[in-house]
Nucleic acid binder design. Structure first.
Length: 875
DNA sequence: TTCTAGTTCGTTTTT
DNA sequence: CGAACTAGAA
């Protein structure tokens, strides 16, 4: 421990001068206070202000600290004023965090940093200033995925393409992918464009863009792509921003996609002299001869004949040309851009992130200074060693060696379980043990590869009464009720918002179904008017049935009234009025389902959040970009999330279940991305391990239910790749809740034994051996059908039950089996509606529906479930 | 138009 | 095994 100020097991030290000791005071004397406590590399990263800088910041090395300190440094050195610094992150959370820390550091609010934000929010901001230059109005709507898909469905219909064979969602994905790669419709390689909808992919993309302009809307991808187009077509505008931004900082650079890269590239060029054509700048951003994967985005007009060459990654090596086909001039030297990232944490390749961006930084930004942060202030020795050793199996990386001065700590544990349920049980018990030992549950996290793994843990925790919180999941503004409410407001704000109108015409139900909407569409198309105006016209005719006509007229009148009220009513109040008068609130109040209450809460929250904005317009402009999930949840609880959403977080105790071939690494990724996919999965594993400060615990199960059927699995190859010196194989403690027996087949033990000795052998080789053993032990698999609950009643299962699979099962008490079989034939329920009941697994709830012996119960914690009456008792 | 019974098909997710 | 969607009846 040579760093006296370091706090063991904590994140990067927060240096209070008082706690710093002599050394810290000495350092403080050497420079401004905010620099004190930085290690030499961090300090270099902060102080190297001129020219391009790449900071390779390994996990837990103080990345955010460097970024914020650097901004503080720039400001305090007087090198730039706050509005001259462009600082981009990927998530709102990261942006918020930076603002917060910056505020602390500078001792005041950072309202003066208007250009600190996400790529999308900044892109959107710039776009609004110059909307007319890209055929939009400054109040354009940002579409969510739902709207996008709905719009595409219409286009598919217009082209009479079977949306069974060519789902709109798929097209949305393709378009999104193209936009991520910086490709406008004319730039998409025709081979690729033709793959969708019998060659109509490209045409659809083009008409989609056209429709967006008509609707005065942009999707997320447009916020960047249209920005790039804006810059390309308007050199003066670009120059304005180039001049403004004296410094550019980028967080999580390894996650940037091509569009983001291009955007940064444009902005980071030194301002060109007036008169120098833009073509001198742009194409230099990409050099097809060197960046095969990007070639498609480079030579937009270079002709379709080269498609095959591009697709195969071998673009012609001729001089790059710009949009006009002119030869490329030497690009001006890039200015002060500082990118921070970690190639070992690039886990969004499947979404268009280009690891290449970070790998090729030095090439892209000549003269770049590369600074490595390798001192880890987070994890103990064993954990760090395990993570480093694992990631070292990757080839495509810049290479960093993380080190810590912390103690070795506990070894990383690997535990095998019979099946996923036992895995959940084992983890549950270990967590309770930690809790008894005085650990704070906020310092416990379970990180899973796929979200379906979460349910098992939730069930278990509800049973145990262990508080937990699921991180991630649907965002606040993605929830149906929020989108519906927003749609109402959108229609009020801009009557031409067809997508919003369509969303709510029949929500709540007004008897205005497909037929009516279709009619409106026809009208709108013929007269080239928005749906809302079409509706106004149609109501005057007798084309609609009286009932539909009446309610449509009512709806229009309501909107007219609301729009009038808008002038005289506060926007929050207006929102309440709209939600009430439209019957939307009532719809949820009448809804008997379990989450209706929380939806109403969300609506209240939405209205509350509107207060932060001056008016409806301002609210709508920002809402789709910055609205985050509800924060809340201050209570002590275990965190449950996917590995992806764990990036950037840290916990004392991290549980990593499901390390099995097929699940992790995910088979699908392997199939689709091959080796690159495997490496990304490995980085994911690395991210998982490095989330842990003191304890990292890995698990694998021998049997797991995938898509409803049980299958035998084999331990993940990543387990084999861990250094045995830092790993401990432990027994599963999960056997208890099942009345003893808890034994596993010998197979599991063999697994564990062989694990320690064979970690040098290729994983899959051992996998073969294990597979055989696994099948031998399959007799126990009937267990799958043994799960309690509704499933038991869905078919001919009684044969399976009596068939004897069970008597061989050592793990379940036969009593339950007998009970299950016996009760399942009963017909008359002894329960009545609204009875309060208790269920072993789901806890308390009340009966909302009775169907023979099947009850639908709204559980207080687990939500609404169908269960068999024999599994609950009245209380 | 809407409700309900059948079918399908299963990563990861920001903005 | 279930959520999420789709095709027919009320």
């Amino acid at each position: 421990m040579t760093e006296p100020s370091k706090l063991p097991h904590r994140g990067v030290p927060e240096h209070q001068p008082a706690a710093g000791g002599i050394a810290a005071r000495a350092r403080a004397a050497a420079g401004p206070q905010y620099l004190s406590g930085l290690n030499p590399e961090q300090r270099e990263a902060v102080e190297t202000l001129d020219g391009p800088v790449l900071v390779l910041a390994g996990a837990g090395t103080g990345k955010t600290r460097v970024l914020t300190t650097r901004i503080a440094h720039i400001l305090s050195q007087g090198r730039a004023r706050p509005h001259e610094i462009l600082s981009v992150t990927f998530t709102n959370k990261a942006a918020r965090e930076m603002k917060l820390r910056l505020g602390q550091m500078l001792g005041q609010a950072v309202e003066g940093m208007p250009w600190l934000g996400t790529f999308h929010s900044i892109g959107g901001r710039i776009l609004r200033f110059h909307a007319e230059l890209v055929q939009l109005k400054s109040n354009f709507t940002v579409l969510d995925v739902d709207d996008q898909v709905r719009l595409l469905k219409q286009l598919l219909q217009a082209e009479s393409i079977d949306d069974k064979r060519w789902p709109a969602r798929m097209l949305a994905g393709l378009i999104d992918g193209w936009k991520n790669r910086g490709l406008t419709p004319s730039q998409v390689p025709s081979g690729e464009a033709a793959m969708f909808g019998n060659g109509k992919g490209g045409k659809l993309y083009a008409s989609y863009q056209e429709r967006l302009k008509i609707l005065n809307a942009a999707d997320f991808g447009d916020l960047l792509l249209e920005n790039i187009r804006l810059f390309r077509e308007n050199p003066d505008v670009l120059r304005q921003y180039q001049n403004r931004f004296k410094f550019i900082l980028v967080d999580e650079y390894q996650d940037t996609n091509v569009a983001q890269y291009l955007w940064l590239r444009l902005l980071s060029q030194a301002p060109s002299r007036p008169g120098v054509p833009l073509s001198a700048i742009i194409p230099g951003a990409m050099d097809p001869a060197v960046i095969p994967g990007r070639a498609a985005g480079v030579n937009p007009e270079s002709g379709d004949k080269e498609d095959s060459a591009r697709d195969s990654g071998f673009a012609p090596a001729g001089a790059p040309r710009n949009d006009a086909g002119n030869p490329v001039a030497q690009p001006s030297p890039p200015k002060n851009i500082c990118c921070v990232g970690d190639d070992d944490q690039s886990i969004y390749g499947w979404r268009g992130a280009e690891v290449d961006n970070i790998l090729r930084f030095e090439h892209d930004f000549p003269g770049a200074k590369v600074i490595r942060l390798e001192r880890n202030y987070r994890s103990t020795g064993h954990i760090l060693a395990a993570a480093s050793h694992l990631i070292a199996h990757n080839e495509g990386r810049l290479g960093k060696t993380l080190r810590t001065e912390d103690v070795d700590g506990e070894k990383v544990t690997v535990t095998g379980s019979w099946d996923s349920e036992e895995e959940a049980r084992a983890i549950g018990e270990e967590i309770e043990e930690l809790q008894r030992a005085g650990e704070n549950l906020n310092e416990v996290a379970i990180l899973v590869r796929a979200s379906f793994q979460m349910r098992e843990f939730e069930d278990r925790f509800v049973t145990l009464g262990l508080p937990y919180r699921v991180i991630g999941g649907p965002r606040f503004y993605e929830r149906a009720e929020i989108r519906d409410a927003l749609a109402y407001l959108r229609v009020i704000n801009s009557p031409a918002d067809d997508l919003a109108f369509e969303r709510i015409v029949n929500v709540p139900k007004r008897g205005l179904g497909d037929a009516t909407v279709q009619l409106l569409h026809d009208h709108a198309r013929k007269r080239r008017m928005p749906l809302f105006e079409a509706a106004r016209a149609v109501v005057e005719t007798d084309e609609l049935k009286p009932k539909a006509r009446g309610s449509l007229r009512d709806l229009i009148l309501q909107f007219d009234r609301w729009r009038a009220q808008r002038e005289v009513t506060a926007h929050t109040e207006l929102a309440e009025i709209v939600l009430d008068e439209s019957g939307y609130t009532e719809m949820w109040q009448k809804d008997r389902s379990a989450d209706a209450a929380s939806r109403l809460d969300n609506l209240k929250e939405l209205v509350r959040s509107m207060e932060e904005f001056e008016n409806l317009q301002g609210f709508l402009e920002h809402i789709s970009l910055v609205m985050d999930r509800d924060g809340g949840a201050e209570d002590e609880a275990v965190s449950l999330m996917t590995l992806h959403s764990a990036k950037g977080l840290e916990f004392d105790n991290v549980f990593l279940p499901g390390w099995e071939e097929g699940l992790f690494p995910s088979q699908r990724t392997l199939d689709e991305q091959g080796r690159a996919g495997l490496e990304e999965e490995r980085r994911l594993a690395h991210v998982g391990l490095t989330r842990a400060r003191r304890r990292a615990k890995l698990y694998f199960a021998t049997n797991r239910r995938i898509h409803g059927t049980w299958s035998t699995t084999i331990p993940s190859r990543f387990l084999d790749e861990l250094p045995s010196a830092n790993v401990e194989i432990t027994e599963s403690k999960g056997g208890s809740g099942w009345g003893g027996a808890g034994g596993y087949g010998p197979s599991r033990f063999d697994n564990v034994e062989s694990f320690g000795s064979s970690y040098a052998t290729p994983g899959w080789q051992r996998a073969q051996a294990n597979r055989n053993r696994g099948q031998a032990g399959r007799s126990g698999q009937a267990r799958g059908g043994f799960e309690e609950g509704q499933s038991s009643f869905s078919g001919s299962r009684s044969d399976a039950f009596s068939g004897g699979g069970f008597s061989r099962n050592k793990r379940g008490p036969l009593v339950i089996e007998g009970e299950l079989v016996a009760k399942s034939t009963g017909t008359v329920s002894e329960f009545s509606l609204d009875d309060r009941v208790f269920h072993q697994k789901f806890g308390y709830g009340h009966v909302v529906k009775i169907d023979g012996n099947k009850l639908t119960i709204a559980f207080e914690k687990a939500g609404e479930k169908k269960v068999v009456d024999s599994f609950v008792e009245r209380v």
